[in-house]
Write a protein that binds this DNA or RNA. Structure first.
Lengths: 208, 208
DNA sequence: CGTTACTTGAAACGTTCATTTGAATTGGCC
DNA sequence: GGCCAATTCAAATGAACGTTTCAAGTAACG
């Protein structure tokens, strides 16, 4: 069964890439997990790089578009920002098998493969999320706020979230008792939202 | 001359590790750059992992202690926070050969080698920086602020800085015209400082 | 001068992977 | 059933690296 093996390979790779990232996963790992032969990857996808791109592309096709939570509160920017932070933080800090795509993206972000796969990821997932968040941020800024200002605030929101994934090994050493369970994630989301909303309010005051 | 080759190896490795990170540098690269033989690393340091640790340890011995900029304004927490952000952002976003240690730390943060080298880095460089910043943050919070609150604000400050290094490939794609030159770095430092100060002020108001 | 310890150099070794090969197997189709 | 293309499998190939080996060179010291 052709499609069967292909699908099992993609599923296995998805999980492993999300957990460890492209470079830390061997074809043997994937084949073993998928219950397939080592040569299956090269037969179906050509080589590892194209396979990697295909896995990501498949997942991009499956789920795309901006976060649903943001559509719920279109007329309350402050609530929308809080919703985004809560949603985003949970995705990237939760278990890798829950939102494999976001975890792969986090790996890609740090290990920009030279292939155009990162371009595709940015355009199809990150830019929609970023632009939607930028709209929310812009709605919380003076109407004459510069694009640079909007960008910096938007990055501030995202940065604080992604660091809890990227810099986790260091954070854990600095505060060994820290655990990213549901309550802590909620507290962090609350903190980040309030911090950014306060900063946005201060920026409004400056131009008043 | 023994020490000569050893020093040249360490210098070469320092530069390369700062640029690309441990995993992306081969012993041949280092030997070539140092003008030494391939076997020199194994002869002088045992193996690649111990060499890596030794390089970092040497650099840790050379410069250590909290950022000097923070000592200048001990009685003005707001100015101290701004000084820290400006100093930190410049170090990690500037060219790798200017503050190689900070760049290596950034790589280690994302690639936690299983060795105890990250523990050493955290204890000797990151924790002093972190604790000093936490003091500044605490001085800007109500005196009864919880350790969790202090921690979250401290992480917020650091996160926004390090993301400009870690997530740069994505940021650059989202905003191709963006360049991290001196003026932009200054603007970002200004933005981050003000954002955090506003958040801290808001937290003070909540408990008043 | 000669011995000894230390250092360097070139080549070889062993391992880990991705990738290829070619034979076996399967499944559809007449 | 028998042919044909697609797929699977075990084994081989080859490249990239870290590591080891051992002969050659060098300097300190008697």
């Amino acid at each position: 069964m052709a499609a069967d093996t292909k699908d099992r390979l993609i599923d296995a790779a998805l999980a492993l890439f999300a957990e460890r990232g492209f470079g830390q996963v061997t074809i043997q790992d994937i084949a073993k997990r998928a219950g397939a032969n080592i040569a299956a990857v090269n037969y179906h996808f050509g080589d590892k790089a194209r396979f990697h791109a295909e896995v990501i592309r498949t997942q991009l096709d499956r789920r795309s578009g901006p976060p649903p939570e943001l559509a719920d509160v279109p007329d309350d920017p402050a609530a929308a920002l809080t919703a985004f932070v809560t949603w985003f933080l949970r995705r990237i800090c939760g278990p890798a098998n829950e939102a494999p795509l976001q975890h792969i993206l986090m790996h890609e972000q740090v290990h920009p493969g030279e292939s155009p796969v990162l371009d595709e990821i940015v355009e199809r997932v990150m830019r929609p999320q970023h632009d939607r968040l930028a709209e929310v941020v812009a709605a919380l800024l003076p109407s004459d706020a510069s694009p640079d200002t909007i960008r910096r605030f938007t990055f501030s929101v995202i940065s604080q979230c992604v660091s809890y994934k990227h810099a986790w090994p260091v954070m854990k050493r600095l505060h060994p008792e820290l655990e990213l369970d549901d309550t802590e994630l909620a507290a962090i989301a609350d903190h980040v939202s309030r911090l950014c909303l306060a900063g946005l309010a201060a920026e409004r005051d400056r131009h008043a």
